[in-house]
Design a protein around this nucleic acid. Structure first.
Lengths: 161, 161
DNA sequence: CAAATATAGTGGCATATACCAGTAAATTCC
DNA sequence: GGAATTTACTGGTATATGCCACTATATTTG
């Protein structure tokens, strides 16, 4: 009985997708943060700068959606970057509620500088896990982060639960 | 040239293992938090209670290691749970620096109550991703979170970088 | 055994991230 | 066109998580 209990609890930590992802996220957070070296930026911040650059003047709303992040969380996360003048917000011409997010010249430079740091971290990652498994993992995680996944998850609650 | 740039940046956000894991982590965080219902606990807290229960009086150090978490981060994370009297710290008899972490009766009850909530979330997850892919994903993530992975990653920096 | 060093935790500070309650601007509906 | 509603963002509060500096307690060394 007590052993059955242990087994159940063991199965929880071992079988929980959410905590598995979180643990891995902490480990990789450390590793990729280290890769950023003396830049004063975190891996998350580099990632955000890169996404901002990629989306080319997205609104906060659009950026939050792309990052699979709460809008207010994004706002908070942008603050240190704005304070350090790597990012700026420009009011949209058409819709005066919206603010578009873009990199400053300093932000572009910083992002560009760090690309090689990121590449090195990513190279090591793929060396260890293997290019094929890495690609497969990213595909799976991208699906999990997608709206399709969230919808299917919600739908699975209708009938199943 | 500008297109090449776009392509590179696209490749960064699409090919970054760390940000893929983080995005998925945010999505699953939302979903599993929702599953906790009116319990006033987050998914992360349930996960932590479960790990505490599983490890049976581990020291903070041991618990942090199992969670792949910084010791001080664990300390901070435990605070609300201690405040709410779900968890308590007991000084170790032998080593008076160490404090062992255990659930209170209320903590055990809360954890037990939430098992079914977790099971429902996990059931939905596996419905959507498939049991086989889910298991494979957890295996991969467990490896990424392991010390072996961190060591291999460090070693890949010696020769490669 | 006393000094030097290592280990376990704590507290402060900073970022990461979410929810909720506003505020302001746009859109929809009589 | 003006009221009701929706949308985009802001600010407050709370947890999540990491680094660094510091304290207290072991452990190691000479």
């Amino acid at each position: 009985m007590i052993e059955a209990m242990d087994k159940l609890e063991n199965s929880i930590w071992a079988h929980c997708s959410s905590s598995s992802v979180r643990r891995a996220s902490r480990q990789l957070g450390q590793l990729y943060d280290d890769a950023m070296g003396l830049s004063d930026l975190r891996g998350t911040q580099f990632s955000l700068l890169t996404q901002i650059s990629y989306l080319q003047e997205a609104t906060q709303k659009e950026l939050a959606k792309a990052m699979v992040m709460d809008l207010s969380a994004l706002g908070h996360t942008l603050k240190p970057l704005i304070r350090d003048e790597l990012v700026e917000l420009v009011p949209d011409e058409k819709d005066r509620r919206a603010k578009r997010v873009r990199l400053t010249a300093a932000g572009r430079a910083k992002q560009a500088d760090l690309v090689k740091n990121w590449q090195e971290a990513q190279r090591r990652f793929e060396t260890v896990l293997g290019a094929e498994k890495s690609a497969e993992l990213r595909r799976t995680l991208a699906f999990i982060a997608s709206e399709d996944f969230a919808k299917a998850y919600a739908a699975a609650g209708q009938k199943g639960g």
